[in-house]
Design a protein around this nucleic acid. Structure first.
Lengths: 200, 200
DNA sequence: CGCCATCATGGCAGTCACTGCCAGTTAGGC
DNA sequence: GCCTAACTGGCAGTGACTGCCATGATGGCG
């Protein structure tokens, strides 16, 4: 999985450094007021290299999020087309959050910082939506293939599912903003319940 | 409502001309390959003026969509906090589509062209998401005030509702792409039913 | 009808995100 | 140790977008 070559390590490290620099600078001065040059310099890299690591400025802060997709992939293997899709997907996401809660504290703190920024900065919100969008696409095609269910049905379920997930993230970030520290997993499961109540 | 001053009319007209020029050029050459200068020239306006009408290039094609928000506003008055929110919202959107179906054919054809482009061009998809996002924000705060329901609940319902609506638009555009001409309203109500099935 | 405040437009210069190209350096297989 | 492929920085260029200013058109008002 993780290549231990020097190149791989270097690459992972600069990716981290760029992401951290971006996060700090975005928090401090706002996304718009932060230039790519500033982030690059803070990360100890040239502007040109910055763009070899991140496609657009706003996405700098999400570097490393790809691993989340990788963590989801194996869980998807258990999803079957013979049972309702949505509950199974909710299980997958809950499992993901459980893994996060058991993981390093540092990762959670970072995620909270990012989601707070996402809540505050429209430009970042848009970037986050873009990522969601891509993940939805991948997830849909993957599920269509593995479950054999018709595309429109799968798309609807996935789209609704991520909507619930996203609102949970927002609510979690909001709570933290107000100083109330809540559990993301609990917030998410509550949201799933609220969805049933709303659609009953 | 509609001021009949010469200025207002001129303004509305150039707005239309920009939107039409953008739509045609985007269809013909793709969004990325189309420069603002080209759209501006085709619309008979300077580049500087273009940016007085549209905030970012990709949004050019959605000019005039604001009126949809205005058409929704009065319908929102009937929404009460004493009954489940989601069905009421679904009613509002269905009503909106009904109004569209009864309206001018030209408007529907234009909407279809736009949604097809949105489906094909990631940049436009993102722009559409941005608009959705803004509308969700407005809708949520408006509903929180008028219904007195707690913000998180309202946000969840609106976000899910919009997701269902969006997938309907996509499906509608897909069908049209394949030559099957389907009814948008019917597609939407089917999606609402599918949502119940998925969450049961 | 003529005057004035307001607004709409175009041009220009400037910033900044992002890309292609080229040259120099470095890791890693042989 | 050698050679290929990957990584990097610099540079020039494009295009989106903004602020500023001058000019002309509109519409209200005496």
């Amino acid at each position: 999985m993780t290549e231990t070559g020097l190149r791989e390590r270097r690459r992972a490290q600069t990716e981290r450094e760029i992401a951290d620099a971006a996060l700090t600078l975005f928090e401090e001065h706002g996304v718009e007021a932060t230039t790519v040059g500033q982030v690059a310099r803070a990360a100890g890299v040239s502007e040109r290299t910055f763009f070899r690591y991140v496609a657009v400025k706003e996405l700098a802060v999400f570097a490393g999020d790809a691993e989340i997709g990788e963590r989801i992939a194996p869980m998807l293997a258990d999803v079957t087309g013979d049972e309702p899709l949505l509950p199974q997907l909710e299980q997958v996401w809950a499992e993901l959050l459980r893994g996060l809660a058991e993981g390093r504290d540092e990762q959670q703190r970072r995620m909270l910082r990012v989601r707070r920024l996402v809540r505050r900065e429209p430009a970042l919100r848009l970037a986050a939506l873009r990522l969601d969008e891509e993940r939805v696409g991948d997830l849909v095609s993957s599920l269509v293939e593995s479950t054999g269910r018709p595309e429109p049905e799968v798309r609807l379920v996935v789209e609704v599912g991520v909507a619930v997930f996203r609102t949970s993230l927002d609510r979690w970030a909001d709570a933290a903003e107000r100083g109330e520290h809540t559990d993301l997993l609990a917030t998410y499961t509550e949201a799933c319940v609220a969805l049933r109540r709303a659609t009953r």
